[in-house]
Amino acid sequence: MNIFVCIKQVPDTETKVTPNSSGTYIETNSIKWIMNPYDEFAVEQSLLIKAAKPEANVTVIRVGGSKDTEALRTAMAMGADEAILIEASDNLDSYMTAKALKGAIEKTGKKPDLILTGKQAIDDDCLQVPQLLAQMLGLPSVSVVVGFELAGNDLTLRREIEGGTIEIYKLQSPCLVACNKGLNTPRYASLPGIMKAKKKPLTTYKLSDVGVADADMRIKYSAFSLPPEKPAGKKMDAMDAAKQNEVVKKVVGLLRTEAKVI
């Protein structure tokens, strides 16, 4: 069974984002990069399958900058068998990213039985790559998956939609599954795992190696800017029980007369 896990490296959620001086992207010099949190669920799911099916082979693929390869190494330290890095800028658009992933999967010569991804990357928040990649490979896909069962080639997937409602899908592999938080608990990369990962193969490609050209660009960003700062609000002290009623009355009143939201 060939499992491909597509991951992204993103700035840590604690990162304070600052636009770069030309406004074309954010300042990336002092950023701490982490594996996209949703992708950790995808990696874990592949390893749970591998634990049940030892013959399964897990290849983890990432498109992005080559300066740090931590996300790929972490995935291998967690237990993935090999890794592929497609060198590109960290803010390549979704269409080019999906096309690059497709090219890399095809280059391995292995027919994918299952492709796992996170439901979205927390940097550009586009939520496009999983569906685009599935479409390009002619595979069905299910996104925002919080439940996963595999029996033979039969998959039962639970997709979360509005209001916590669950859609249950039944389908057969090959397919693409985009994972959400709640699907599993990602394991830590163990220290022996980190040592072993050193010896696992990491193949590097350029975008042109996997059939992606400048003409494939579909999205252009400009004028990165910080959201406007709100003017300071009103802060009222209600630690004292005597003041509570008065403060609550005042706030409710302001919500109606000043903010006009009630």
């Binding site: 700035p11 990162t15 304070k16 984002v17 600052t18 636009p19 406004g23 954010i26 269409y95 927390i122 940097d123 550009d124 928040d125 003409a215 494939d216 660009m217 579909r218 999205i219 252009k220 960003y221 400009s222 004028a223 990165f224 800017s225 910080l226 959201p227």
Partner: peptide, 16 residues
């Protein structure tokens, strides 16, 4: 559109 969950905004054009 907002990026980084709204930590910043950018203008977006569609090409192709």
């Amino acid at each position: 559109r907002p990026l980084f969950a709204g930590k910043c905004y950018a203008k977006v054009e569609i090409l192709g």
